[in-house]
Design a protein around this nucleic acid. Structure first.
Lengths: 188, 188
DNA sequence: TCCGATATTGACTGACCAGTCAGTTTTTGT
DNA sequence: ACAAAAACTGACTGGTCAGTCAATATCGGA
């Protein structure tokens, strides 16, 4: 019965996103999840590990969303474009989760160990980039910087679309444009 | 004698950057500045307004750095390139200040009013972009999105250079490359 | 020099909160 | 059905911290 565990994680995500970590007492998380204060600490050793678990959960959901229908046999451009669209789709579909994941990634609330582990899960992405580099497809930069640029551009695209409530055609156009700008930039 | 005021701001910047806002008690700020607890509240109504003032201070310093030797009569590309180099120069020259400014910009610790005011100070930048748009120089996107992309790319460039301790030629090459990638992306 | 105004001090207060634990309820195995 | 284990409860504790304020020090004008 990890039902309560899920409820606690869900409550944490809601409250952390809306109020910020420092403004959400564990007591409120428990209440929001419909359990007693003490119960939270049966499932999570401390508030710190709760944060770690929330972060892992979000990263996992994000990864899952990104990888759905991934074109394993597509071209590099198709693969990156797929990630582009799916990432933005997730960001707009789950704005609170997206914002929280971003905040957690910057703040040093997440333990080094967890951050390390999450980084390793992105290895497949680096492979794609390295392959593109080998083909002379990209401007000569490190895969690391390529990844950083991609994330930076994606974040900006999501933030803009979100702030302006873009929908339907306007949204599609925006996503396409944002990708084109990125692609033209990193491509020879 | 706003000497103490400056000391308090400086101490706040140091401690906020190193320990995080929520982990630095006002008492420690006061001690670090060499004054008593109560004195801090003579200069700043509350911890919240202290944060506002810190943010304004950082933005102001940043703006000042950016605008030094600004090529008023240069081409649009020269002007944006100038901002590019100066921004990165500031980020690498004052890493703690840069990190703190970024953190504050994301967190909602800064009051809406101050955030608003700071936004207005960037008006001159929007003018440059609008001019470029009118000339058909840029891809057709809003000046707002252009600005977001620029900031996103700059942040990535600073973060990368900072993490890898780039210096001298390697640094110059990196800055140039980062600008080229951005410019090629947003330009027709 | 003297005095009122202003700045500074730091012990103190009231509120908050992470984490505990003794007691209670629920589950599990036989 | 029963007992032992496991899960759950929430009042409580020890510690922290923003902001106060009465007492003290410093300053500036006459």
């Amino acid at each position: 019965m990890n039902d309560k565990r899920t409820q606690l994680l869900e409550a944490s995500i809601d409250l952390f996103a809306d109020e910020g970590f420092w403004n959400t007492p564990t007591a409120r998380i428990a209440r929001h999840a419909g359990v007693a204060t003490g119960t939270l600490f049966n499932y999570f050793e401390s508030k710190d590990v709760l944060i770690d678990e929330v972060y892992m959960q979000l990263k996992h959901e994000w990864m899952h969303h990104i990888m759905q229908n991934f074109p394993q046999n597509g071209t590099i451009k198709e693969q990156i474009e797929h990630i582009w669209f799916r990432h933005i789709d997730w960001g707009l579909g789950f704005p609170r989760r997206y914002a929280l994941k971003q905040q957690l990634a910057l703040s040093d609330l997440v333990s080094d160990e967890v951050q390390q582990r999450q980084q390793e899960a992105l290895a497949f992405g680096f492979e794609i980039v390295e392959r593109g580099m080998a083909d002379g497809l990209f401007v000569p930069i490190s895969a690391e910087y390529f990844g950083m640029l991609m994330v930076a551009n994606l974040d900006a695209a999501v933030q803009y679309a979100s702030a302006h409530h873009l929908k339907d055609m306007a949204l599609t156009r925006h996503i396409t444009t944002s990708f084109e700008i990125f692609w033209r930039g990193v491509t020879n």
